[in-house]
Design a protein around this nucleic acid. Structure first.
Lengths: 182, 182
DNA sequence: CTTACCATGTAAGGCGTTACATGATTCA
DNA sequence: TGAATCATGTAACGCCTTACATGGTAAG
Protein backbone atom coordinates (compact mmCIF):
# COMPACT_ATOMS: atom_id res chain seq x y z
CA UNK A 1 0.00 0.00 0.00
CA UNK A 2 2.45 2.60 -1.11
CA UNK A 3 1.86 3.70 -4.69
CA UNK A 4 -1.82 4.00 -5.42
CA UNK A 5 -2.59 5.09 -8.90
CA UNK A 6 -5.02 7.96 -8.61
CA UNK A 7 -7.14 6.65 -11.43
CA UNK A 8 -7.81 3.45 -9.50
CA UNK A 9 -8.92 5.41 -6.46
CA UNK A 10 -11.22 7.65 -8.47
CA UNK A 11 -12.91 4.66 -10.03
CA UNK A 12 -13.20 2.76 -6.76
CA UNK A 13 -14.59 5.86 -5.10
CA UNK A 14 -17.30 6.14 -7.71
CA UNK A 15 -18.03 2.41 -7.64
CA UNK A 16 -18.34 2.60 -3.86
CA UNK A 17 -21.47 4.61 -4.34
CA UNK A 18 -23.04 2.66 -7.20
CA UNK A 19 -22.40 0.09 -9.90
CA UNK A 20 -21.26 1.71 -13.10
CA UNK A 21 -20.07 1.05 -16.63
CA UNK A 22 -16.86 2.55 -17.94
CA UNK A 23 -18.88 4.97 -19.99
CA UNK A 24 -20.83 6.11 -16.96
CA UNK A 25 -17.64 6.55 -14.96
CA UNK A 26 -16.36 8.86 -17.64
CA UNK A 27 -19.59 10.83 -17.43
CA UNK A 28 -19.36 11.17 -13.65
CA UNK A 29 -15.81 12.45 -13.95
CA UNK A 30 -16.89 14.89 -16.65
CA UNK A 31 -19.64 16.34 -14.50
CA UNK A 32 -19.26 15.87 -10.76
CA UNK A 33 -15.45 15.94 -10.72
CA UNK A 34 -15.02 18.20 -13.72
CA UNK A 35 -13.59 21.24 -12.02
CA UNK A 36 -10.87 19.41 -10.12
CA UNK A 37 -10.21 16.18 -12.00
CA UNK A 38 -10.22 14.69 -15.49
CA UNK A 39 -9.70 11.35 -17.22
CA UNK A 40 -10.03 9.84 -20.68
CA UNK A 41 -11.35 6.48 -21.88
CA UNK A 42 -7.80 5.50 -22.69
CA UNK A 43 -7.05 5.39 -18.99
CA UNK A 44 -10.46 4.36 -17.63
CA UNK A 45 -11.01 1.11 -19.50
CA UNK A 46 -7.56 -0.37 -18.91
CA UNK A 47 -7.79 0.65 -15.25
CA UNK A 48 -11.13 -1.13 -14.90
CA UNK A 49 -9.76 -4.39 -16.25
CA UNK A 50 -6.80 -4.03 -13.99
CA UNK A 51 -9.03 -3.56 -10.95
CA UNK A 52 -10.88 -6.75 -11.85
CA UNK A 53 -7.61 -8.66 -12.23
CA UNK A 54 -6.55 -7.50 -8.80
CA UNK A 55 -9.85 -8.50 -7.24
CA UNK A 56 -10.85 -4.96 -6.32
CA UNK A 57 -13.88 -4.98 -8.60
CA UNK A 58 -15.99 -7.47 -10.55
CA UNK A 59 -17.33 -7.22 -14.06
CA UNK A 60 -20.59 -8.54 -15.43
CA UNK A 61 -22.53 -8.17 -18.63
CA UNK A 62 -25.82 -6.38 -18.57
CA UNK A 63 -28.25 -8.96 -19.93
CA UNK A 64 -31.43 -6.96 -19.40
CA UNK A 65 -30.30 -4.35 -21.83
CA UNK A 66 -29.89 -4.50 -25.57
CA UNK A 67 -26.61 -2.68 -25.41
CA UNK A 68 -23.31 -4.36 -24.89
CA UNK A 69 -22.84 -2.98 -21.39
CA UNK A 70 -20.23 -4.12 -18.88
CA UNK A 71 -21.18 -3.24 -15.35
CA UNK A 72 -18.51 -2.98 -12.69
CA UNK A 73 -19.06 -3.57 -8.99
CA UNK A 74 -16.65 -2.89 -6.16
CA UNK A 75 -15.61 -5.85 -3.97
CA UNK A 76 -14.91 -5.85 -0.23
CA UNK A 77 -11.20 -5.79 -1.01
CA UNK A 78 -11.86 -2.82 -3.24
CA UNK A 79 -13.62 -1.02 -0.43
CA UNK A 80 -10.76 -1.74 1.92
CA UNK A 81 -8.23 -0.56 -0.61
CA UNK A 82 -10.16 2.69 -1.06
CA UNK A 83 -10.41 3.22 2.68
CA UNK A 84 -6.72 2.68 3.17
CA UNK A 85 -5.99 5.22 0.49
CA UNK A 86 -8.42 7.71 1.97
CA UNK A 87 -6.67 7.36 5.34
CA UNK A 88 -3.30 8.29 3.83
CA UNK A 89 -2.30 11.95 3.78
CA UNK A 90 -2.78 13.82 0.52
CA UNK A 91 0.40 13.55 -1.54
CA UNK A 92 -0.01 16.58 -3.74
CA UNK A 93 -2.47 18.86 -5.39
CA UNK A 94 -1.31 19.70 -8.86
CA UNK A 95 -2.29 22.69 -10.91
CA UNK A 96 -1.03 23.94 -14.20
CA UNK A 97 -2.65 27.21 -15.02
CA UNK A 98 -1.75 28.11 -18.56
CA UNK A 99 -3.80 31.28 -18.12
CA UNK A 100 -1.54 32.42 -15.28
CA UNK A 101 1.51 31.51 -17.30
CA UNK A 102 0.45 33.80 -20.14
CA UNK A 103 -0.38 36.42 -17.58
CA UNK A 104 3.00 36.13 -15.91
CA UNK A 105 4.68 36.83 -19.23
CA UNK A 106 2.18 39.57 -20.01
CA UNK A 107 4.87 42.21 -20.33
CA UNK A 108 5.97 40.56 -23.58
CA UNK A 109 2.58 40.90 -25.18
CA UNK A 110 1.11 44.07 -23.70
CA UNK A 111 -2.04 44.90 -21.81
CA UNK A 112 -4.62 44.39 -24.54
CA UNK A 113 -3.74 40.80 -25.29
CA UNK A 114 -3.48 40.03 -21.62
CA UNK A 115 -6.92 41.48 -21.05
CA UNK A 116 -8.35 39.33 -23.78
CA UNK A 117 -6.93 36.22 -22.11
CA UNK A 118 -8.57 37.33 -18.89
CA UNK A 119 -11.86 37.86 -20.72
CA UNK A 120 -11.84 34.30 -21.97
CA UNK A 121 -10.97 32.98 -18.53
CA UNK A 122 -13.72 35.09 -16.98
CA UNK A 123 -16.33 33.83 -19.38
CA UNK A 124 -15.39 30.22 -18.82
CA UNK A 125 -15.40 30.70 -15.08
CA UNK A 126 -18.80 32.35 -15.19
CA UNK A 127 -20.28 29.43 -17.10
CA UNK A 128 -18.85 26.83 -14.78
CA UNK A 129 -19.94 28.79 -11.76
CA UNK A 130 -23.46 28.77 -13.14
CA UNK A 131 -23.28 25.01 -13.42
CA UNK A 132 -21.95 24.70 -9.87
CA UNK A 133 -24.71 26.90 -8.48
CA UNK A 134 -27.29 24.60 -10.05
CA UNK A 135 -25.53 21.58 -8.63
CA UNK A 136 -25.49 23.24 -5.22
CA UNK A 137 -29.22 23.80 -5.37
CA UNK A 138 -30.09 20.25 -6.31
CA UNK A 139 -27.69 18.80 -3.76
CA UNK A 140 -29.18 20.91 -0.99
CA UNK A 141 -32.63 19.65 -1.96
CA UNK A 142 -31.68 16.03 -1.49
CA UNK A 143 -29.10 16.32 1.23
CA UNK A 144 -30.83 13.86 3.52
CA UNK A 145 -31.28 11.19 0.85
CA UNK A 146 -27.74 10.02 1.01
CA UNK A 147 -24.85 10.63 3.41
CA UNK A 148 -22.51 11.07 0.49
CA UNK A 149 -24.38 14.14 -0.74
CA UNK A 150 -22.99 16.21 2.08
CA UNK A 151 -19.50 15.54 0.80
CA UNK A 152 -20.44 16.21 -2.79
CA UNK A 153 -21.88 19.51 -1.65
CA UNK A 154 -18.64 20.34 0.10
CA UNK A 155 -16.66 20.04 -3.11
CA UNK A 156 -19.24 22.10 -4.95
CA UNK A 157 -18.96 24.81 -2.31
CA UNK A 158 -15.22 24.75 -2.79
CA UNK A 159 -15.70 25.33 -6.49
CA UNK A 160 -18.17 28.15 -5.94
CA UNK A 161 -15.91 29.94 -3.47
CA UNK A 162 -12.86 29.72 -5.69
CA UNK A 163 -14.76 30.69 -8.83
CA UNK A 164 -16.17 33.72 -7.02
CA UNK A 165 -12.62 34.64 -6.11
CA UNK A 166 -11.51 34.18 -9.73
CA UNK A 167 -14.21 36.50 -10.98
CA UNK A 168 -13.38 39.13 -8.42
CA UNK A 169 -9.76 38.92 -9.47
CA UNK A 170 -10.64 39.20 -13.16
CA UNK A 171 -12.42 42.48 -12.49
CA UNK A 172 -9.54 43.96 -10.51
CA UNK A 173 -6.88 42.68 -12.86
CA UNK A 174 -8.55 44.22 -15.87
CA UNK A 175 -9.00 47.48 -14.05
CA UNK A 176 -5.32 47.59 -13.16
CA UNK A 177 -4.29 46.82 -16.73
CA UNK A 178 -6.59 49.42 -18.22
CA UNK A 179 -5.60 52.16 -15.80
CA UNK A 180 -1.97 51.64 -16.63
CA UNK A 181 -2.63 51.44 -20.32
CA UNK A 182 -3.81 55.05 -20.48
CA UNK B 1 3.21 26.82 -34.77
CA UNK B 2 0.66 24.37 -33.56
CA UNK B 3 1.96 22.23 -30.71
CA UNK B 4 4.03 24.27 -28.34
CA UNK B 5 5.38 22.31 -25.46
CA UNK B 6 4.53 24.29 -22.36
CA UNK B 7 7.96 23.69 -20.87
CA UNK B 8 9.57 25.50 -23.80
CA UNK B 9 7.29 28.48 -23.32
CA UNK B 10 7.94 28.68 -19.60
CA UNK B 11 11.68 28.68 -20.18
CA UNK B 12 11.53 31.21 -23.01
CA UNK B 13 9.30 33.43 -20.91
CA UNK B 14 11.82 33.43 -18.10
CA UNK B 15 14.75 33.94 -20.46
CA UNK B 16 12.93 36.87 -22.03
CA UNK B 17 13.42 38.74 -18.80
CA UNK B 18 17.01 37.73 -18.04
CA UNK B 19 19.80 35.30 -18.88
CA UNK B 20 19.63 32.22 -16.71
CA UNK B 21 21.20 28.85 -16.03
CA UNK B 22 19.12 25.69 -15.88
CA UNK B 23 19.53 25.67 -12.16
CA UNK B 24 18.26 29.22 -11.85
CA UNK B 25 15.29 28.46 -14.08
CA UNK B 26 14.34 25.68 -11.73
CA UNK B 27 14.56 28.11 -8.84
CA UNK B 28 12.35 30.67 -10.54
CA UNK B 29 9.74 28.01 -11.21
CA UNK B 30 9.94 26.86 -7.61
CA UNK B 31 9.33 30.33 -6.25
CA UNK B 32 7.60 32.75 -8.61
CA UNK B 33 5.53 30.14 -10.46
CA UNK B 34 5.22 27.72 -7.59
CA UNK B 35 1.52 27.99 -6.91
CA UNK B 36 0.43 27.44 -10.50
CA UNK B 37 3.26 25.60 -12.23
CA UNK B 38 6.01 23.07 -11.59
CA UNK B 39 8.90 21.40 -13.39
CA UNK B 40 11.83 19.12 -12.64
CA UNK B 41 15.44 19.12 -13.81
CA UNK B 42 14.63 16.04 -15.84
CA UNK B 43 12.50 18.17 -18.11
CA UNK B 44 14.32 21.50 -17.87
CA UNK B 45 17.80 20.49 -19.02
CA UNK B 46 16.71 18.49 -22.06
CA UNK B 47 14.32 21.30 -23.01
CA UNK B 48 17.14 23.84 -22.83
CA UNK B 49 19.34 21.86 -25.19
CA UNK B 50 16.41 21.43 -27.48
CA UNK B 51 15.77 25.19 -27.54
CA UNK B 52 19.41 25.77 -28.50
CA UNK B 53 19.18 23.20 -31.30
CA UNK B 54 16.12 24.96 -32.66
CA UNK B 55 17.80 28.34 -32.52
CA UNK B 56 15.41 29.77 -29.94
CA UNK B 57 18.16 30.23 -27.36
CA UNK B 58 21.95 30.26 -27.17
CA UNK B 59 24.20 28.65 -24.61
CA UNK B 60 27.52 29.91 -23.31
CA UNK B 61 29.89 28.97 -20.53
CA UNK B 62 30.34 31.34 -17.66
CA UNK B 63 34.07 32.01 -17.67
CA UNK B 64 34.09 34.61 -14.91
CA UNK B 65 32.88 32.09 -12.41
CA UNK B 66 34.65 29.13 -10.89
CA UNK B 67 31.58 26.97 -11.27
CA UNK B 68 30.73 25.08 -14.36
CA UNK B 69 27.80 27.29 -15.28
CA UNK B 70 25.96 27.25 -18.59
CA UNK B 71 24.12 30.47 -19.23
CA UNK B 72 21.21 30.54 -21.63
CA UNK B 73 20.08 33.58 -23.61
CA UNK B 74 16.96 33.94 -25.70
CA UNK B 75 17.37 34.76 -29.41
CA UNK B 76 15.17 36.96 -31.58
CA UNK B 77 13.57 33.83 -32.97
CA UNK B 78 12.95 32.72 -29.40
CA UNK B 79 11.24 36.00 -28.63
CA UNK B 80 9.08 35.69 -31.70
CA UNK B 81 8.18 32.14 -30.84
CA UNK B 82 7.16 33.21 -27.35
CA UNK B 83 5.08 36.08 -28.66
CA UNK B 84 3.28 33.85 -31.11
CA UNK B 85 2.46 31.45 -28.32
CA UNK B 86 1.28 34.27 -26.06
CA UNK B 87 -1.06 35.46 -28.80
CA UNK B 88 -2.74 32.05 -29.06
CA UNK B 89 -5.76 31.37 -26.89
CA UNK B 90 -5.21 29.39 -23.71
CA UNK B 91 -5.67 25.71 -24.47
CA UNK B 92 -6.46 24.46 -21.01
CA UNK B 93 -5.93 24.99 -17.34
CA UNK B 94 -5.40 21.69 -15.61
CA UNK B 95 -5.95 20.92 -12.00
CA UNK B 96 -5.85 17.69 -10.11
CA UNK B 97 -6.88 18.30 -6.56
CA UNK B 98 -6.24 15.14 -4.62
CA UNK B 99 -7.58 16.91 -1.55
CA UNK B 100 -10.94 17.41 -3.23
CA UNK B 101 -10.93 13.83 -4.40
CA UNK B 102 -10.57 12.54 -0.86
CA UNK B 103 -13.20 15.00 0.19
CA UNK B 104 -15.61 13.86 -2.49
CA UNK B 105 -15.35 10.32 -1.19
CA UNK B 106 -15.54 11.52 2.40
CA UNK B 107 -18.63 9.46 3.12
CA UNK B 108 -16.47 6.33 2.99
CA UNK B 109 -14.13 7.55 5.69
CA UNK B 110 -16.30 9.67 7.95
CA UNK B 111 -16.16 13.21 9.19
CA UNK B 112 -13.09 13.03 11.43
CA UNK B 113 -10.70 11.83 8.78
CA UNK B 114 -12.11 14.28 6.29
CA UNK B 115 -11.58 17.10 8.76
CA UNK B 116 -7.98 16.10 9.26
CA UNK B 117 -7.40 16.27 5.50
CA UNK B 118 -8.91 19.74 5.53
CA UNK B 119 -6.63 20.71 8.42
CA UNK B 120 -3.55 19.76 6.46
CA UNK B 121 -4.79 21.61 3.41
CA UNK B 122 -5.58 24.66 5.51
CA UNK B 123 -2.15 24.73 7.08
CA UNK B 124 -0.41 24.42 3.75
CA UNK B 125 -2.58 27.14 2.27
CA UNK B 126 -1.90 29.45 5.18
CA UNK B 127 1.87 29.06 4.76
CA UNK B 128 1.78 29.69 1.04
CA UNK B 129 -0.51 32.65 1.52
CA UNK B 130 2.03 34.11 3.90
CA UNK B 131 4.69 33.75 1.25
CA UNK B 132 2.46 35.36 -1.36
CA UNK B 133 1.69 38.30 0.91
CA UNK B 134 5.40 38.95 1.29
CA UNK B 135 5.88 38.69 -2.46
CA UNK B 136 3.01 41.13 -2.94
CA UNK B 137 4.66 43.63 -0.64
CA UNK B 138 8.06 43.53 -2.29
CA UNK B 139 6.54 43.67 -5.77
CA UNK B 140 4.52 46.72 -4.86
CA UNK B 141 7.66 48.40 -3.61
CA UNK B 142 9.44 48.05 -6.92
CA UNK B 143 6.54 48.20 -9.30
CA UNK B 144 8.02 51.03 -11.34
CA UNK B 145 11.44 49.40 -11.75
CA UNK B 146 10.31 47.02 -14.42
CA UNK B 147 7.20 46.76 -16.57
CA UNK B 148 7.10 43.03 -15.96
CA UNK B 149 6.55 43.49 -12.24
CA UNK B 150 2.99 44.58 -12.82
CA UNK B 151 2.26 41.22 -14.39
CA UNK B 152 4.05 39.31 -11.67
CA UNK B 153 1.95 41.18 -9.16
CA UNK B 154 -1.20 40.19 -11.01
CA UNK B 155 -0.44 36.50 -10.63
CA UNK B 156 0.39 37.00 -6.97
CA UNK B 157 -2.95 38.74 -6.45
CA UNK B 158 -4.61 35.80 -8.10
CA UNK B 159 -2.96 33.48 -5.64
CA UNK B 160 -3.87 35.61 -2.67
CA UNK B 161 -7.51 35.86 -3.70
CA UNK B 162 -7.87 32.13 -4.27
CA UNK B 163 -6.00 31.21 -1.10
CA UNK B 164 -8.25 33.52 0.88
CA UNK B 165 -11.20 31.71 -0.64
CA UNK B 166 -9.68 28.34 0.24
CA UNK B 167 -9.26 29.36 3.87
CA UNK B 168 -12.79 30.64 4.09
CA UNK B 169 -14.02 27.38 2.65
CA UNK B 170 -11.94 25.34 5.12
CA UNK B 171 -13.61 27.10 8.01
CA UNK B 172 -17.11 26.55 6.70
CA UNK B 173 -16.48 23.00 5.61
CA UNK B 174 -15.19 22.00 9.02
CA UNK B 175 -18.12 23.68 10.69
CA UNK B 176 -20.55 21.76 8.53
CA UNK B 177 -18.81 18.47 9.19
CA UNK B 178 -18.64 19.03 12.94
CA UNK B 179 -22.26 20.11 13.23
CA UNK B 180 -23.39 16.99 11.47
CA UNK B 181 -21.11 14.76 13.44
CA UNK B 182 -22.90 15.46 16.70
C1' DC C 1 -31.82 8.37 -42.70
C1' DT C 2 -28.72 10.60 -40.30
C1' DT C 3 -27.13 12.76 -36.25
C1' DA C 4 -26.22 12.35 -31.68
C1' DC C 5 -25.31 9.60 -28.12
C1' DC C 6 -24.31 5.00 -26.00
C1' DA C 7 -20.58 1.78 -25.42
C1' DT C 8 -15.88 -0.50 -25.39
C1' DG C 9 -11.50 -0.77 -26.29
C1' DT C 10 -6.29 -0.47 -28.32
C1' DA C 11 -1.83 1.57 -29.96
C1' DA C 12 1.32 5.06 -30.36
C1' DG C 13 3.34 8.50 -28.61
C1' DG C 14 4.07 12.63 -25.54
C1' DC C 15 5.34 14.51 -21.55
C1' DG C 16 7.06 14.49 -17.28
C1' DT C 17 8.82 12.70 -12.79
C1' DT C 18 11.98 9.96 -9.98
C1' DA C 19 16.15 8.14 -9.16
C1' DC C 20 20.62 7.99 -10.25
C1' DA C 21 25.30 9.85 -11.23
C1' DT C 22 28.80 13.35 -10.53
C1' DG C 23 31.34 16.94 -8.77
C1' DA C 24 32.45 21.89 -7.08
C1' DT C 25 31.94 25.42 -3.51
C1' DT C 26 30.56 27.71 0.58
C1' DC C 27 29.76 28.15 5.28
C1' DA C 28 29.58 26.74 10.01
C1' DT D 1 35.09 18.16 7.78
C1' DG D 2 30.56 17.73 6.90
C1' DA D 3 26.25 19.64 5.39
C1' DA D 4 23.94 22.56 2.36
C1' DT D 5 23.69 24.48 -1.86
C1' DC D 6 25.27 25.15 -6.55
C1' DA D 7 25.33 22.91 -10.93
C1' DT D 8 24.40 19.61 -14.91
C1' DG D 9 22.74 15.93 -16.79
C1' DT D 10 20.76 10.85 -18.16
C1' DA D 11 17.87 6.59 -18.04
C1' DA D 12 14.03 4.21 -16.80
C1' DC D 13 9.71 4.27 -16.21
C1' DG D 14 4.85 5.78 -15.37
C1' DC D 15 0.92 7.73 -16.57
C1' DC D 16 -2.04 9.78 -19.50
C1' DT D 17 -4.00 11.69 -23.83
C1' DT D 18 -4.97 11.46 -28.70
C1' DA D 19 -6.34 9.14 -32.44
C1' DC D 20 -8.07 5.26 -34.20
C1' DA D 21 -11.33 1.32 -34.64
C1' DT D 22 -15.96 -0.55 -34.18
C1' DG D 23 -20.66 -0.99 -33.70
C1' DG D 24 -25.47 -0.45 -31.52
C1' DT D 25 -29.57 2.57 -30.55
C1' DA D 26 -32.69 6.54 -30.05
C1' DA D 27 -34.78 10.49 -31.74
C1' DG D 28 -35.95 13.89 -35.04
Amino acid sequence: MANEKKMDCVILGLLCHEELTGYEIKKRINTALKFFWSASYGSIYPALNDLVNRGLATKREDTGNKRNKLIYTITDEGRNYLKEWLALPVEKDELRYETLLKLFFGNEQGAEQTISHIDVFEEKTRKELQYLLEAEKSLKDCLSDDGAHKYYLLTVEFGIKTYDAYLEWCKEAKKLLMDNGE
